[in-house]
Nucleic acid binder design. Structure first.
Length: 585
DNA sequence: GCCGTTTTCGGCCCGACTGTTTTCAGTCG
């Protein structure tokens, strides 16, 4: 049972309690616990440990017991009992926008509807519209939502919607009536998966901005539209919300809609301690609470013109959006110990790229040229090794030829350097796809798993560790093999992998391809603690995809990394020494 | 069900929008 599966169970309990009409705060306690587990950086084995469990915020005795039962047995009696009270398919009704617990309960109790199929039928025969609290409009909306649902899942990789988000932002910012415009929400926090795009615009003419937004060519349909808030569906299928505020309200709205929710609660409670209330529009004096035994503070409310001043007002250093996940950023901001996060400009080169020699779409020369255009000082070429048949892996002869070409090209290059590497398959038993004699000819080796994903956690961990113990292995690529929204990570003990990385000096890749973003940002603070070095690689199979490095930097920032944590921030002169040093450790 | 520099009991974020109502409940973020 993985961390995310446990979170999913807590989420399901919360939904079932909602259907039962339980105490809303109890329901929220389960949702909070689920989110808390998801966001938590620890490993699964810690979940069996009572002390570690009780340190996770939002988890008390009752939920801790349930998690222990889940971790130990893989099932939970309490959940089974709850499930028995409703038909299994009823939960899928929650995926229809506009349907919540109350409406689903009514549909179930009045019309015995417990699946999307039954719901569609009932809408088509007009029975839904006759229920109290429903109507013709609601019925038609449900029909449309069911059709919409068939077209997309509602979840998107960050990279899939980045273009739309940036286009809308710059088009809105370009309006003469827009005084400020920004993308907020999970996109701004650089979450790997987003399910909507939030935009905030400051203006004196809300109607003009709203009208422009609703008529934008990227907008496919309008979901809701009011004086300050509009929701639309974009062509990609993602929902996009626009909030229109005044200039004075803008910093509050931007912070509020950037979130995340737990971070906002943290900000609000800090405001309360000062005797203020914080919402998406302003800081205001807290209304007197007749029940309060003692008076709260009544500090004078300072002027707030931007987000930094908002954080300052709450006695905090500015917290970069990527860190706003309620994972100890408040403590660090209070103690002035937030790290100076890595910036895009800090990257000097990168190591994991493919060419037409294996399954890439551009030649060595084209990739080299593109890297120089991006302003990089070096580029490592790591084509697939011979066992990766599906990726046209190269054999020893082709590899030797590529090494020779790279050495020759380097003689012509000035102020830029190509490194000869390989993305070497880690075979089933943890041995590598080429013998050491071949690997020793290269400048570096990227080791990765591309086959036999279904080993047990112990076997997979042993396999990867064996590869990492080879001194010629410079870095471990995409350590969990996940493909976001497509393929689950294979079972592997990342905590153990990080220990071995620390011991052997093996760099761990942050694969910047938006479908991977692996190793996950939640692990990086732990990696850093143990002195493990990161390398941000685009895994580019064509020149355009070198730009994925940008996504990698976002995730590295989210993992609290600075430029000293990331090997490819080293300039050319130092990276060569670092590559050599890795082999002679 | 969780939590505590005000607390072991009594709080727990709250505003926007929609649709069905005729002053508000439900949903969403």
């Amino acid at each position: 049972m993985t961390k995310n599966e446990i979170a999913a169970v807590l989420e399901e309990i919360s939904t079932l309690l909602e259907l039962k009409g339980e105490n809303p705060f109890k329901i929220r306690a389960y949702t909070n616990a689920a989110r808390s587990i998801e966001a938590w950086g620890g490993s699964l084995s810690d979940l069996k440990n009572e002390e570690a469990l009780s340190k996770i915020p939002g988890i008390g005795k009752s939920i801790a017991d349930k998690i222990k039962e889940l971790a130990a047995t893989g099932s939970l009696k309490y959940l089974e009992e709850l499930r028995a009270e409703f038909p299994a398919a009823i939960l899928e009704l929650f995926s229809i926008p506009g349907l919540g617990a109350k409406k689903i309960k009514a549909l179930y109790e009045e019309l015995q509807i417990s699946s999307i199929g039954q719901l569609l039928k009932a809408c088509e025969t007009g029975r839904v519209a006759k229920l109290p609290g429903f109507g013709e409009t609601t019925q038609a909306k449900i029909c449309r939502a069911i059709e919409e649902r068939a077209r997309h899942s509602g979840y998107f990789q960050f990279g899939q919607i980045a273009n739309e988000a940036e286009t809308l932002k710059s088009d809105l910012a370009g309006r003469p009536d827009a005084l400020q415009a920004h993308v907020a929400g999970s996109y701004r926090r650089r979450k790997e998966i987003v399910h909507d795009v939030d935009l905030v615009v400051a203006t004196r003419k809300p109607e003009a901005i709203t009208k422009f937004f609703a008529g934008h060519p990227l907008v496919e349909s309008i979901i809701a539209q009011g004086p300050t808030k509009s929701s639309v569906r974009l062509r990609s299928g993602i929902q996009c919300d626009l909030r229109v505020v005044t200039v004075a309200e803008y910093p509050f709205a931007l912070a509020y809609f950037t979130g995340n929710k737990e971070h906002n609660i943290g900000l609000r409670s800090r405001a309360l301690q000062c005797g203020w209330t914080l919402n998406e529009y302003r800081l205001a004096p807290s209304p007197p609470d007749p029940k309060a035994k003692k008076k709260r503070g009544t500090k004078k409310i300072p002027k707030v013109r931007d987000e930094a001043e908002l954080y300052r007002a709450l006695d905090l250093d500015f917290i970069p959006p990527e860190l706003r996940e309620n994972r100890s950023e408040f403590e660090a901001a209070e103690k002035h110990s937030l790290p100076k996060l890595i910036e895009k400009e800090d990257l000097r080169g990168t190591f994991h790229c493919h060419t037409t020699a294996s399954d890439g779409h551009n030649t060595l020369e084209e990739m080299s040229q593109a890297a120089q255009t991006l302003g990089l000082e070096y580029l490592g070429i790591a084509d697939h090794s011979r066992s990766s048949i599906q990726a046209h892996g190269i054999d020893e002869a082709a590899l030797r030829a590529q090494i020779a070409t790279i050495r020759k090209l380097n003689k012509k290059l000035d102020g830029f350097r190509l490194f000869a590497g390989i993305e070497c398959d880690i075979l089933r038993d943890g041995s590598l796809d080429f013998p050491d004699e071949v690997l020793s000819q290269l400048d570096y080796v990227v080791a990765s798993v591309h086959s036999v994903f279904n080993l047990s956690e112990a076997d997979m961990t042993r396999r990867v560790i064996r590869a990492m113990e080879n001194p010629f292995v410079t870095m471990l690529a995409h350590p969990t093999g996940r493909l976001l929204l497509k393929r689950e990570p294979y079972e592997i003990d990342i905590s153990a992998i990080l220990d071995v990385a620390a011991r052997t000096g093996t760099w761990i890749e942050l694969n910047a391809a938006p479908k991977r973003l692996d190793l996950d940002w939640r692990w990086w603070p732990r990696a850093k603690e143990r002195g493990v070095k990161c390398v941000i690689n685009p895994d580019a199979h064509r020149v355009e995809r070198l730009q994925d490095l940008w996504f990698g930097v976002g995730i590295a920032r989210k993992g609290w990394l600075t430029k000293t944590d990331v090997m490819n921030c080293l300039p050319l002169g130092k990276i060569e020494a670092a590559l050599r040093a890795k082999r002679t450790r």
